[in-house]
Every structure is written in structure tokens, then in C-alpha cells.
């Protein structure tokens, strides 16, 4: 990451002229705020930072930020971001999206992002519902949840994002809450600085289709201060807690990243077709 020499940057330096399309009170405002704040704190160069997203309310994100952006198709933010980072390791790459993107249509990509440990940051805005399509169930909706697509109550179990990320051995796992933007900004900042695949699960309520503000206000609790983020088993215990929604840094481990290892396997040289074709002579 290229650090700026510019003295102070604020949130406004990263905000684009496009007004967010979200409903009033949407949790994603808090996440956007926290993200902009973390960018300013890190003095991320807008010309060398790319925010990649999929489809959904939260995936409009790149349009509201002054860095480069890539608003792709549903579920594919992670592979777009990984391809970009593999090809351009010099850039800061952040993938954003919602629970539909990351835990339903694109959940397969999460597994492989974890295995590769390419240095990108994923920020997942989880509202436990499909907001853009008006309130159907999502993988993180609770069992029994009644919606237009689950008129008799949701028959499936609830997906646990943090526990899944920990079980996949993602090298940086954190959770934040959109209503606590300061703490969230700090987590996103750490996640961006982490070398490897970092996963920030954000509780980001949808006041229009599934208002979980009160429930989460009551359930959210900071991880105990004594929690050691190198202890994955303990972290899993907190992630599996059925009462509390712990926020903070669950787990962190420094591991080699695929894009850097891939560039160390051989010493590159200039390609010359005359030389290359000789093998077929």
C-alpha cells in the first residue's frame, strides 16, 4: 500500500458526488461512514484503491466513494477482487456486499478466498434479509422467520458467518455493528492493514424490511478484553454464542499471501516468441 504524504484527509475527501440510494435509517450509511473514515485514517490513495461489489442494496457502495470502483454482478465481488489483486498486487482492494452476495449466490467463493489468502478485505453488510428485492429470506435469516418467500416460517437453519469464516481459517475475522461506526472504522482499518484475506462481518439492519436495530442493540457486546485473537478455538466459541452478538477482532494470523508467493516462484524475464517457439522445432 502506498502511504500518502498529504497531511490530513477527512471522510469528505473520499465521498463521491453520488448520493446514496439507501432508505432513511439504513445500516449501510453507518458502514459507508466507517469505511470512509478508515480510508481517511489510512490516507489510502484514491487512484490506487479499488472498491469491488456485487449486487444488492449494499453493493451500490462503490458509487458513493471517490476511489476506483467496480460494481460487478451478483455474488462475484470476491473473484473480481482476487483477480484484480493477483494481477495488480500494488493496489488496495476492498470487496463489499451483502449477505445474499457473500453467503448465498457467491458463498462458494468465500471458501476459496480463505484457502488462497489473497490480500483483499471483504466487508459484508448483513441485514438478514433481501432488501433490494423487498424482504425475502436470506441465508442469515433466523429459522422460522416469516416473509413473503417463507409464508409458513423459514424452514432452513440460520447461517453463521463468523463461525464459517473461522472454520475456513480466514486469516483475519472481525465483526462490527453499523450503529457503532467508530469501532467499525477501527476494525476496517485493521482489516485493510492486514496482509491476507480479511473478513469483516457487519451487522447492518434494514429498517424497511427487517428491522433488527433493537434486537442487535440488546445482543451486541464487545469481545472480552482478554480474548486472544490468535486463539481460533476460543474465537469459535464466541462466534457460536446463541445469545450475544460479539463484536471486535475474533481472529488474526499472518500467513503468506498467494499473490506474493506466486511472484516469487520463478524470476521473470522478458518474453521472446523466437525463443519460445524453439521448443516446437
Amino acid at each position: 500500500m502506498v502511504q500518502s504524504t498529504t497531511p490530513t484527509l477527512t471522510l469528505k475527501d473520499y465521498k463521491s458526488e453520488v448520493k446514496p440510494t439507501w432508505c432513511p435509517g439504513c445500516g449501510d450509511f453507518g458502514v459507508l461512514n466507517a469505511t470512509l473514515r478508515s480510508m481517511a485514517a489510512l490516507k489510502l490513495p484514491v487512484d490506487q484503491t479499488v472498491v469491488v461489489s456485487g449486487i444488492g442494496c449494499s453493493s451500490r457502495f462503490p458509487h458513493f466513494i471517490r476511489t476506483f470502483g467496480f460494481h460487478s454482478v451478483h455474488g462475484r465481488a470476491l473473484p473480481v477482487a482476487q483477480g484484480l489483486k493477483m494481477a495488480r498486487p500494488d493496489l488496495t482492494v476492498i470487496a463489499v456486499g451483502g449477505d445474499g452476495d457473500f453467503f448465498s449466490i457467491g458463498v462458494g467463493h468465500l471458501v476459496h478466498a480463505a484457502l488462497r489468502n489473497i490480500d483483499i478485505t471483504a466487508i459484508v453488510m448483513d441485514n438478514e434479509t433481501y432488501g433490494l428485492t423487498k424482504g425475502q429470506t436470506s441465508p442469515t435469516s433466523p429459522h422460522g422467520h416469516k416473509t413473503k418467500s417463507s409464508p409458513y416460517g423459514l424452514l432452513a437453519s440460520q447461517f453463521n458467518p463468523v463461525a464459517t469464516a473461522l472454520s475456513l481459517n480466514v486469516s483475519f475475522v472481525a465483526r462490527g455493528y453499523s450503529a457503532r461506526p467508530k469501532e467499525l472504522a477501527a476494525l476496517i482499518e485493521q482489516a485493510t492493514l492486514h496482509r491476507g484475506f480479511s473478513f469483516v462481518h457487519v451487522l447492518s439492519p434494514c429498517p424497511t424490511f427487517y428491522n433488527t436495530f433493537d434486537a442487535w442493540d440488546a445482543a451486541v457486546a464487545p469481545l472480552p478484553e482478554e480474548h486472544d485473537p490468535s486463539n481460533r478455538l476460543k474465537a469459535l466459541g464466541y462466534a457460536l454464542d446463541s445469545e450475544k452478538q460479539y463484536i471486535g477482532l475474533f481472529y488474526r494470523e499472518e500467513r503468506p499471501t498467494m499473490e506474493s508467493v506466486a511472484r516469487e516462484v520463478v524470476a521473470p524475464r522478458e518474453f521472446r516468441i523466437e525463443e519460445y517457439i524453439q521448443r516446437y522445432a
Binding site: S72, G75, G83, H109
Partner: peptide, 20 residues
């Protein structure tokens, strides 16, 4: 750089990321 993708959707998505 080379990436063996998890499926063909990821493959072309990664290609578009690199192209971007």
C-alpha cells in the same frame, strides 16, 4: 499471474478484475 478458479463464473470474474 495465474489463478485456477473455483468455477467458470469466478474465472471470468477474476479476468475482468485483472482487466480493470
Amino acid at each position: 499471474a495465474f489463478l485456477q478458479a473455483e468455477d467458470e463464473m469466478a474465472a471470468l470474474a477474476a479476468v475482468l478484475g485483472a482487466s480493470f
